[in-house]
Write a protein that binds this DNA or RNA. Structure first.
Lengths: 209, 209, 209, 209
DNA sequence: TATGAATGAGTCTTCATTCAT
DNA sequence: GATGAATGAAGACTCATTCAT
């Protein structure tokens, strides 16, 4: 895949990736300008199209690149932790780590989720089915100890509710642009509150003892 | 407002509205092609721009048209019902009514929420502040009897979770394109299950007796 | 010529003529909008094009209409006056009369002279060859007593210089927008000075005695 | 300024300049068609807009280009010559030089002076204030020996008459399209006659001795 | 006859993609 | 391989002219 691009100097590759992420995140697939990307990356127009044969190919490459990058970081998680709420607590911490290291990645992912351009819509959907950020069957929810849930509820539905809450909360928070320093801490505390609430409601009484 | 368009024959108006909704829903504001719209609506290029003076005006018209259309249907709701789950049950029924009468409306609304084009972004935000479809403080959640909720949870957070679940479930379902007849019934039954689950978990024991 | 238009009520005709003159004078042939004209004249678009089959026909009609209108006023001149400078003095007075009565006419004529649109350029040139405003062979310079000119100069050339001076002076003055009351008087006095200068230079000594 | 255009091959540049001058001179700013220009210049639509970012930029470029071109040629004039008629004789020769090298330039300048389009009106006015082609106070009439004029006339008025005669004569000649070879010579001789006439009339007797 | 909505060729401008150097 | 100028289809929008009512 992308042999010409792969054999470039790492620094040049990074320049191109950063320039492209920046532009796609800012403008979405349609509006993103390849002119802007080559200018930012300091390469020739023709070069970009020799590495990636089309705007679409470049976009799909970035999509995979970022998803893999995030997947790698998720490997740090303690996958032996079987409590779903504990795991989601850790995930929140990890997300902040990614964010601090690579803030544009999430911008791109957010733009991804809102992408309407038909050329890339299906690619996104395909890729996302396997991704960490997708629905309840993803690896985030593997090896969860389901015995802790109340017996009178459908566990898969409960997990879906938890998942949707996590996604919606994250989106809500990212829409509040907070520049002050300790916003992380506050957001994490708020998220803990949501997790506690759900734990109290969805787990058996004795689990909340 | 839009006097020329308003005085068109209803069928022609509907053609144009449907063609425009279809195109905007498929491609978003920017990429949507007025050429495509006039072709689909079977009118001349000049006609579209005599009804609406710009692409933006057409978009804003649709935005208001659909929001008002949905608002009107929402008036059918029994707003004296104070049980949140009962109300969401009724809302689900109403949504299906809208969907059957005007299937593209929700597609457009979904695209709306994801719209990034700066030309229309602020229009969307302004209009949506008053809309039914907005966040948990909207009229859907007015007059809710909060005394039914368990005393040990934050009620606003619980309502948020319920709201996010409703939105996410609806989106999930609309992504499953079901053409067979009775899918409504099945989807409503599934939604009832979610509501029951949340009721059982978030309400006081005696409310579920 | 223009039978449909001719048989209209005089008031309606005048409305249309005034509206058209105004628009053509303001914007030139190309930019002039038939929409603007019908709006100002309070008639339907289709009517305009049934009176005049095209924008061009309307323009040519106006051209002839105004030239004839001005020709008629020129009939007031004392054509027995054979002194060229005396005649030009009277013409200046008459021009102010026309201007006061029908200010748009000169605007239109000025726009005429600057018209570039190829559709009407040749029409203008043709018409103007016969017109009062054109070159030295026009009726303004008929019956002039050429014996007053110095014997050592080419009289036709002298007349051309006088003519060009008249045209250029008029244009210069009309470019100075003077709203204060007595600008007429001042402009006429200045013009007299030019006439005196040329008389002193182009006539025999004894004529200036 | 216009770096992309500047670095084109001279022949290509000339093609574009000629095509653009031709079209603007023929139709004025508004009606001039960029389609026509690219067709005539044998370049792609996109190319024109990569050299000049808009129709207006192209127009302003031409405006400056031609004015500078003419200014440069005017530098050849013997500015120590203080006799106004001698100077105007030399200027006529120079104008023919320009005309032979760059025949469309004067057409463009003529159209320029008549241009009404608001997009470029102010640009034209700004540029023309400094230009050689402007009114009687321009450098053409600097350093003129006014003592040669008759004492009994207003010198500024006399200069105005001379200036207006020069402009009007030039316009009259350029309207007579003469393709036969020796028309220059004839036109220059005719112009000399005009100059002689005015010299004889406006100068003191002893200057004509 | 009068109307004005409908028409569609034409306007300037953009930008992903190609290809000669 | 790298370059970036050249391409031209497609974009939104205008307006003189036509024609069904």
């Amino acid at each position: 895949m992308y042999p010409k691009f792969s054999s470039l100097e790492p620094e040049k590759k990074e320049n191109i990736i950063n320039a492209a992420i920046k532009e796609f995140a800012r403008s979405g697939y349609d509006r993103a300008s390849t002119n802007e990307i080559v200018k930012e990356a300091n390469i020739a127009k023709g070069s970009l199209f020799s590495y990636f044969h089309s705007k679409k190919e470049l976009y799909v490459f970035l999509l995979n690149y970022i998803v893999e990058f995030i997947d790698k970081i998720y490997d740090e998680l303690d996958w032996n932790e079987t409590d779903i709420f504990q795991r989601l607590k850790e995930i929140a911490v990890i997300k902040f780590k990614i964010y601090r290291k690579f803030p544009r990645a999430f911008d791109f992912l957010k733009a991804l989720a809102q992408e309407n351009a038909p050329e890339v819509k299906s690619e996104i959907d395909n890729r996302m089915k396997k991704a960490v950020l997708d629905n309840g069957s993803a690896r985030i929810y593997r090896n969860i100890d389901v015995t802790k849930f109340r017996d009178d509820i459908d566990i898969q539905k409960a997990i879906n509710i938890i998942h949707w809450t996590a996604l919606s909360f994250a989106e809500q928070q990212s829409n509040n642009i907070n520049s002050y320093e300790d916003s992380d801490v506050e957001q994490l505390r708020e998220w803990d509150n949501y997790l506690d609430l759900m734990k109290r409601c969805f787990y058996k009484k004795e689990e909340n003892a």
